[in-house]
Simulated scan of single mutants.
Amino acid sequence: MNPVATWRRLLAELLGTALLVTAVVGSGIMAATLSPDDVGLQLLQNSIATAFALGALILTFGPVSGAHFNPVVSAADWFLGRRTGTGLSLRDLAGYTVAQTIGAIAGSVLANLMFDLAAVDISAKTRTGTHLWLGEVVATTGLLLLIFALARSGRAAVAPAAVGAYIGAAYWFTSSTSFANPAVSIGRAFTDTFAGISPGSLPGFIAAQLIGLALGVGLLLALYPDVAAAAEKVVIPAERAARRQRAASRR
């Protein structure tokens, strides 16, 4: 289990999620300001900033908490490792989820303030429809497959680049622009800007993300029957996981 104190891990998840949402919302505001008449360019600017920020944040906070920044990732880690005791405990899952959600809201507030907007400005941007929900299912399922496949195969070191690249790409190949994260979805409801989502649209998005969670876990179990062993590598500090891998290879 992760030797880092629980409060440090929760603080890392709160700060990491806050800065992720700040990057998403802040780059969206900047994009809309710099390219007011070109939505495609706005999305490009927003996606590039988010991809790079996510990779940097995983590098920064991964050694402390695993850098989940996402209740879906934390829930998958708990479920896959629950029988072997290799993932988050149920208590940790609850703590991570609360920290991530508070962090996401704080991230929107921070971005609003940085751009001289009202600290809390509830979004009026409606995002609803079966096609958008399907996009969220695809984005969430793919994210889980990537994270746990990397951990299982001993390639967790490339996760910052790989996860950042996936999210950046999913902005473009999914109809929903890949929220893939219940906490981030909630946080983005607190800004009426380019990246916002109305509170009324949240239930559909979160339900789709939970379906993606179930599909992702099911596919992981089908493709990798031993995936439970990887749950620990998504929680423990990266350097500790690397040491264990090196020690195992010498046996």
Score class of each variant (00 low, 15 high):
100 Q>K: 04
209 Q>E: 15
6 T>I: 10
251 R>H: 15
232 E>R: 09
241 A>V: 11
230 A>W: 08
74 S>N: 03
228 A>L: 00
182 P>E: 09
231 A>C: 09
149 A>I: 05
226 D>Y: 02
30 M>C: 01
32 A>I: 00
91 R>I: 14
179 F>T: 08
144 L>K: 03
33 T>M: 12
15 L>P: 13
26 G>M: 09
174 T>G: 11
16 G>A: 12
142 G>P: 07
130 T>N: 10
196 G>I: 09
95 G>A: 05
136 E>Q: 10
159 A>K: 01
216 G>E: 12
213 L>F: 11
211 I>K: 09
24 V>D: 00
70 N>F: 13
117 L>Q: 14
34 L>A: 13
13 E>Q: 14
97 T>N: 07
101 T>C: 04
239 E>H: 00
151 A>G: 01
50 T>V: 14
184 V>T: 06
223 L>T: 14
84 T>V: 02
137 V>W: 03
118 A>R: 13
162 A>E: 07
72 V>H: 02
218 G>Q: 10
118 A>W: 01
249 S>C: 01
92 D>G: 15
190 F>G: 04
44 L>V: 08
63 P>E: 14
231 A>M: 08
188 R>Q: 11
175 S>P: 02
232 E>H: 06
45 Q>W: 12
30 M>L: 15
104 A>P: 03
212 G>W: 09
73 V>P: 02
120 V>I: 13
125 K>L: 15
233 K>I: 01
81 G>T: 11
151 A>L: 05
135 G>Y: 14
191 T>Q: 07
154 G>I: 01
23 A>M: 07
138 V>C: 05
17 T>I: 12
143 L>E: 03
123 S>Q: 13
87 G>C: 05
136 E>H: 10
53 A>F: 04
3 P>L: 09
150 L>H: 06
246 R>A: 15
209 Q>H: 10
156 A>N: 04
21 V>I: 15
250 R>L: 11
228 A>P: 01
171 Y>G: 12
194 F>K: 10
246 R>K: 13
7 W>F: 08
246 R>D: 14
190 F>S: 06
46 N>T: 06
179 F>G: 04
45 Q>D: 00
131 H>F: 03
160 P>E: 02
88 L>K: 03
109 V>Q: 08
57 L>W: 05
177 T>E: 12
20 L>D: 07
211 I>F: 13
99 A>G: 00
158 V>N: 01
70 N>K: 10
245 Q>Y: 08
203 P>K: 07
